[in-house]
């Protein structure tokens, strides 16, 4: 039985009050396991990003809990939640959000720098992770000198460098062509998915569904179906 990476229970989120209240997520519960690549899919406005934000300690739910290692992260102080994101979660944003004024190496090292690791050690570690994504030779370049695919690999290296248990991708293939998108996901799954890590991907790109171990399908803020990757392929 794989170990639970996180357990979401009764998650709810709404925006506005009274008659203007709009439900973004309504009564969602699921478990994500270590060693699993879990997709959250659904059309735009289905609540994927809101759900992702709540389980990663970014957006406080209006109801429900997100338990990591048996403890509800939302019962912690803001600083503890920030530490949770820093130590336990790795983000790969849709637009990557790399700093154009820093080198690729410095971009990757940012989580380590915020963990107060020594500068030189941070850079050394960053280069190792850049090497792992095949970009060691471009460590000294600024990100805007890299292609879109390369920038995404830099973002992946940055997400991984802190050794997170939970790796979160937000629409990872949205700005990539089909082949590059598949290659990236294949690369991530083969290289960085292990029994100590869970990879969560929010996407509506059906071309990469085949890489998922499980897929949570959402609609109107609710889970409509949880499938195995094989089911989708079938």
């Amino acid at each position: 039985m794989p170990e639970v990476a996180l357990a979401a229970t009764g998650l709810e989120k709404w925006f506005g009050e009274g008659e203007a209240r709009t439900w973004a997520v309504r009564g969602i519960g699921f478990e994500a396991f270590l060693g699993e690549m879990l997709y959250i899919v659904g059309p735009s406005g289905s609540g994927k990003t809101t759900l992702l934000s709540m389980i990663s300690g970014i957006l406080k739910p209006d109801a429900g809990s997100v338990a990591v290692e048996g403890k509800d992260i939302w019962s912690s102080s803001p600083n503890d939640i920030a530490d949770f994101r820093l130590n336990k979660v790795g983000f790969v944003f849709q637009d990557f959000h790399l700093f154009p004024k820093l080198t690729t190496m410095e971009n990757v090292a940012i989580p380590l720098i915020f963990k107060k690791m020594d500068w030189d050690l941070s850079m050394k570690s960053a280069v190792e992770f850049l090497d792992a994504v095949g970009l060691a030779g471009k460590a000294a370049l600024p990100p805007n000198k890299l292609s879109g695919g390369e920038q995404q690999r830099v973002a992946i290296a940055r997400a991984l460098v802190g050794g997170p248990d939970l790796l979160i991708f937000d629409e990872p293939t949205a700005s990539l062509d089909g082949t590059t998108g598949k290659r990236i996901i294949d690369f991530v799954k083969n290289k960085f998915l292990n029994d100590k890590r869970c990879i969560l991907i929010v996407t509506h790109d059906s071309r990469i569904y085949g890489y998922a171990d499980r897929i949570i399908a959402m609609e109107d803020g609710q889970i409509v179906k949880i499938m195995s990757g094989g089911e989708i392929e079938d």
Partner: peptide, 10 residues
Amino acid sequence: GALKAIGARN
């Protein structure tokens, strides 16, 4: 904002 998401404190 991205730094905050990554885990930087205010």
